[in-house]
C-alpha cells in the first residue's frame, strides 16, 4: 500500500513525538535516580556509622550543632524574608522602568552570583572586625541573609508579576488602595511561590559553610541549664559563637580529623543535615498548602 505524503508526515511527526517523550523520561528518571542514590548513600553511611553518643548535646555529640543550624537558619530568615519580600513587592508593584530599576536589577543579579567565601570574608570584616565582636550566630545569620536576599527578592517579584492581571484590576476596581490590593489579594495568591523562594533560601542557610567560617565561627560552648540570654553560654543568645552542622562536617574532614571518630561524626552529621533539609521543605509545603486551602486559593 502506498501512503499519501500527508499520512507520511503525520507518521513521522508521531515517531519523533514518541521518541522525544522517551528521551525526556530518560533524563527525568536519571536525575531522580541520581538524587535517590545520593540521598540513600549519605543517609545509609550515617546510619552505619551511628553510635548513641552522637545524639548528645555535648562536645562529643552533634546536638549543639543541630540546634545551632536551626537557630541560625531561623535568624537569617527573620532578617531576609521581610527584607526580600518587601524588595520583591517594590520591584513588582511600585518601581517604574528606568535606569534606577535596571541598576537595581544588576545589583541583585551580581549579589546572587557572589561566591559565598567572599560574603563570608565581607561578613568577617563588617560584622566581626568592625563591630569588635567575637564570632557569633548573628553575624553568621547576616552573612547567610546576604546570600539568600536576592533569591527571595527575585522569587517574590516573579511570583507577583506572574499573577493574572485580573486580580489587581478586580481589586482596584472595587476601590481598594494599592497596598490593600497587594496585602489582601496579590500576596495571598502567590504565597506558595514565595514559600518556594523561602525554602530555597533556608536551604542555603542549612548548607552554607564558607560564609559561616569567619562569622558564626567553629566553636560551640553551650550550657543547657543557662537561660540568661545575655550570657555567652546561653543556647538562645544570638551573639555567641555557633558552629553549624555543615561547618562541623567540614571541620571533621579537615583539622578535626585527629579525632578518631571524625569520619563517623561527619557521616552522621551529613545524614542528619540531609534529613533536616527534606523535613524543612516538606513542612513548609504542608503549611503553605494549608494556608492556601484555608483562604480558598486552591479548589
Amino acid at each position: 500500500m502506498h501512503d499519501s505524503p500527508m499520512k507520511k508526515r503525520i507518521k513521522k511527526a508521531k515517531t519523533v513525538d514518541s521518541l522525544m517523550t522517551k528521551i525526556f523520561y530518560i533524563f527525568g528518571s536519571f536525575f531522580l535516580f541520581f538524587l535517590l542514590i545520593l540521598a540513600a548513600y549519605i543517609i545509609g553511611k550515617g546510619v552505619i556509622d551511628f553510635y548513641p553518643e552522637l545524639l548528645t548535646f555535648t562536645s562529643k555529640g552533634i546536638g549543639n550543632q543541630f540546634f545551632n543550624t536551626i537557630y541560625l537558619v531561623f535568624l537569617s530568615l527573620v532578617i531576609s524574608v521581610p527584607l526580600g519580600v518587601a524588595a520583591g513587592i517594590y520591584m513588582a508593584e511600585y518601581s517604574k522602568d528606568g535606569k534606577f530599576l535596571t541598576f537595581l536589577r544588576i545589583c541583585i543579579e551580581s549579589l546572587s552570583s557572589l561566591p559565598s567565601i567572599v560574603v563570608g570574608l565581607f561578613g568577617y570584616l563588617v560584622f566581626i572586625l568592625m563591630t569588635g565582636a567575637k564570632w557569633n550566630l548573628m553575624a553568621g545569620a547576616l552573612a547567610v541573609s546576604i546570600l539568600s536576599l536576592p533569591l527571595i527578592t527575585t522569587t517574590t517579584e516573579d511570583a507577583i508579576r506572574s499573577l493574572p492581571k485580573g486580580f489587581k484590576e478586580g481589586s482596584m476596581a472595587l476601590g481598594a488602595s494599592q497596598w490593600r490590593t497587594i496585602s489582601k489579594v496579590l500576596l495571598p495568591a502567590c504565597l506558595p511561590r514565595i514559600a518556594t523562594g523561602i525554602i530555597l533560601a533556608a536551604g542555603r542557610g542549612f548548607g552554607e559553610a564558607a560564609a559561616l567560617l569567619y562569622t558564626a565561627g567553629q566553636s560551640t560552648i553551650i550550657n543547657w541549664s543557662n537561660w540568661d540570654i545575655t550570657s555567652p553560654t546561653c543556647p538562645l543568645n544570638p551573639f555567641r559563637p555557633g558552629e553549624t552542622l555543615s561547618l562541623h562536617i567540614w571541620g571533621m574532614r579537615t583539622e578535626g580529623s585527629l579525632n578518631p571518630n571524625a569520619s563517623a561524626i561527619a557521616n552522621f552529621s551529613a545524614a542528619v543535615l540531609v534529613i533536616m533539609v527534606l523535613a524543612f521543605s516538606l513542612l513548609a509545603r504542608v503549611i503553605t498548602r494549608r494556608i492556601s486551602k484555608k483562604s480558598g486559593g486552591l479548589i
Binding site: P164, E169, S171, A173, G175, V185, P188, G296
Partner: peptide, 28 residues
C-alpha cells in the same frame, strides 16, 4: 471606584472563597 464599579471581560474572582470574594469590598 466605590461609586463606579467594574466587571471585566475575563471573569476575575480572587483566589478566595465565594464568601470572601463578595465580602472583599465591604471589608475594605
Amino acid at each position: 471606584r466605590k461609586r463606579v464599579s467594574m466587571v471585566f471581560q475575563q471573569p476575575n474572582p480572587f483566589p478566595k472563597s465565594v464568601y470572601d470574594n463578595v465580602a472583599y469590598g465591604p471589608r475594605i
